[in-house]
Amino acid sequence: KFIYALPFFIFVLDASAQTPAAPPAIVDVGTATASRVALQRWVPGSVVSRDDAKIASAEAGRLEFVAEVGTRVKAGERIAKIDDQALRLRRDELAAEVRRTDAQRALAATQLDRLQKLEASNTIAKSQIDEARATLETNVQTTSRARAQLHQIEHDIDQADVRAPFAGVVTERFSQRGEYLQVGASIVHLVDTDHIEARVQAPLALADKIRAGMQVQVRAGGAEKPASVRAVVPVGDERARQFELRVGVDPALALVGSAVEVALPETGANTTAGLAIPRDALVQRSDSTYVMRVSGDNKAEQITVTPGTSSGDLVAVQGALSVGDRLVVRGAERLKAGQAVKVRSDG
């Protein structure tokens, strides 16, 4: 038994010795550069809509239709309908009143014209003409009042058809179909999700560094995009020592209600010179932050660094790095020190 097992054991050892080495890991790299990174402070903010309103009823009546939650509507599109049957009946009544008063006005005008023709022959008293003029003027004013009432009721009928004042999404319904609404009752909550911005409460110490129109970075969910300061409210809170600013936000970056961070120019010197690396090169662990440097013989080297201020895609760092070092920006989390790598751009 021993004699037969020995060749098999030798074969297993020989086969394992011939196992090929693992192929090098494919990575993307960036370069460490000497740069002046702007000092910034990341300030929290909340995403809000430029147009956010509770749409209310302008007329009293029974609610016949209300848009479903999640419905996207255009500006001027119907979002609710109030029963306007009583208003339409009132409109018909006022239209008849306009026709009646108009007929009386026409009759008064004819009578005045007839009396004025007889005035030259002195066959009528002057008081009759004065009375006819007064009657005509009264009928003219009565007709004008009836027309104004008709226009008012037509406006009320138009208001019974509740339309979106701006394009947006119905996020909540406060009233349901069949309910009787009073004037001013909230019907739906409408939010414009295309025109959004971050509402930021910044320290008063940064007030002299920020102006409308300046470019800043906005970060949400690990993604970062450039944005523009739309407005700065030049009034501070004396208790919180903060002031408000509004920063435009790309709808693709965050939803209304999301928390974001905005990078604002820091107090003090504008820039600091040092070594800057791509943000994606940083590997953050609970006990340390490091980068993976590609050596001249394409081996991975783990270098511990201390990140500093950031600007866009660059981060200032301190560590055993030099300008021109190749740093892994994609795939560093899976690498081990000494592991063979192959830079993707090397072919």
Score class of each variant (00 low, 15 high):
Lys1Arg: 12
Phe9Asn: 07
Ile10Ala: 14
Ala15Leu: 04
Gln18Lys: 15
Pro20Trp: 03
Asp28Cys: 08
Val29Gly: 02
Gln40Val: 14
Arg41Gly: 08
Trp42Lys: 05
Arg50Tyr: 11
Ala53Tyr: 10
Ile55Pro: 01
Ser57Ala: 14
Ala58Cys: 00
Ala60His: 06
Glu77Ala: 14
Glu77Lys: 02
Asp84His: 08
Arg88Gln: 15
Ala106Asp: 15
Asp113Cys: 01
Glu119Cys: 01
Lys126Tyr: 03
Ile129Ser: 11
Arg133Ser: 12
Leu136Asn: 02
Ala146Arg: 12
Gln149Tyr: 04
Leu150Gln: 14
Asp156Arg: 14
Gln159Pro: 08
Asp161Met: 10
Val169Thr: 13
Phe174Gly: 05
Leu181Asn: 10
Ala198Pro: 05
Arg199His: 13
Gln201Phe: 09
Ala202Asp: 07
Ala207His: 05
Asp208His: 05
Gly213His: 01
Gln217Pro: 06
Ala223Cys: 01
Glu224Tyr: 05
Ala227His: 12
Val233Arg: 02
Glu244Gly: 01
Leu245Pro: 07
Gly248Ala: 15
Ser258Asn: 15
Leu264Met: 09
Asn270Asp: 13
Thr271Met: 08
Thr271Ala: 07
Ala273Ser: 08
Ala273Asn: 03
Leu275Arg: 03
Ala276Val: 11
Asp280Gly: 03
Ala281Cys: 08
Arg293Glu: 10
Glu301Met: 10
Val315Lys: 04
Gln318Met: 06
Asp325Lys: 02
Val328Thr: 07
Gly331Cys: 09
Val341Glu: 00
